[in-house]
Structure formats: structure tokens, C-alpha cells
């Protein structure tokens, strides 16, 4: 494995992903990420000169809908997916600005 993930990097990725990792999990994640980066390096060996960057794998474009209301009130069904409900709203852990 050529790529080494530092402790700071895994810490930072953990913060971004809102994950709390144990020491053991951190080591495992570091190894996984190192292998992924090795694979990316492998891809980097390919000669891509003159190849247009691609953002989509399917040959479709311009998929649109008209500006017409098609949905009614489906709150009751939607709220079934909420972790908690109050006054017709989703209940979430308290957040601060």
C-alpha cells in the first residue's frame, strides 16, 4: 500500500461525515482509504490526453418536467418516515446556528 492516511486526515473525515470512530475503526478506515487511493493512482497511470471529461455515464440529456403542480398534500405519509413528529413537523436533535 503506497498511500498512507494520517491520523489528522481520518479525524477530519470523521468530523465531515459526523462519525465517531474508535481507535480500531480508525485504523481499519485508514487502511481502506489507502487502498482506494492506490486504485485512483492506478487509474492515474492511464493516458487520458485528448479525452473529454465525462460527468454522466448515460447518453441522456435534457430530462425536464413542466411547471405543473402534480402533488397534493401527502403529509401523513411523509411523516411516517420521521424519527419523531410534533405539530406536523419532523422532530430532529436540537441544532444551533
Amino acid at each position: 500500500m503506497a498511500n498512507k492516511i494520517s491520523d489528522e486526515t481520518i479525524e477530519y473525515v470523521g468530523i465531515l461525515a459526523k462519525l465517531e470512530l474508535s481507535g480500531e475503526e480508525k485504523e481499519a478506515a485508514k487502511a481502506d482509504m489507502g487502498r482506494m487511493l492506490d486504485y485512483i493512482d492506478k487509474l492515474g497511470e492511464l493516458d487520458t490526453d485528448g479525452v473529454e471529461p465525462m460527468s454522466h455515464v448515460f447518453a441522456v440529456q435534457n430530462v425536464f418536467r413542466e411547471d405543473v403542480v402534480t402533488n397534493g398534500d401527502m403529509r401523513a405519509d411523509i411523516l411516517k418516515n420521521a424519527p419523531g413528529e410534533k405539530d406536523g413537523m419532523f422532530m430532529a436533535p436540537r441544532t444551533f446556528e
Binding site: R65, V68, V69, T70, N71, D73, R75, I78, M89
Partner: peptide
């Protein structure tokens, strides 16, 4: 617009909470 950017839910103001929602705009 009358509807949201990616789904057919209304953009009208003043609806009771979550009455203008669907699986798309609630990220199901």
C-alpha cells in the same frame, strides 16, 4: 415557479407545515 425545482410540489406560501412535500423534496 408554481412548483419546486425537482418535484411537482407547490411552492405556494403559507401552507400548513409539510403539506407541500413529497418523497423527492424530503430526500427519501
Amino acid at each position: 415557479t408554481k412548483t419546486k425545482i425537482f418535484c411537482g410540489c407547490s411552492t405556494a406560501f403559507g401552507g400548513a407545515p409539510n403539506t407541500h412535500t413529497c418523497p423527492v423534496c424530503t430526500g427519501m
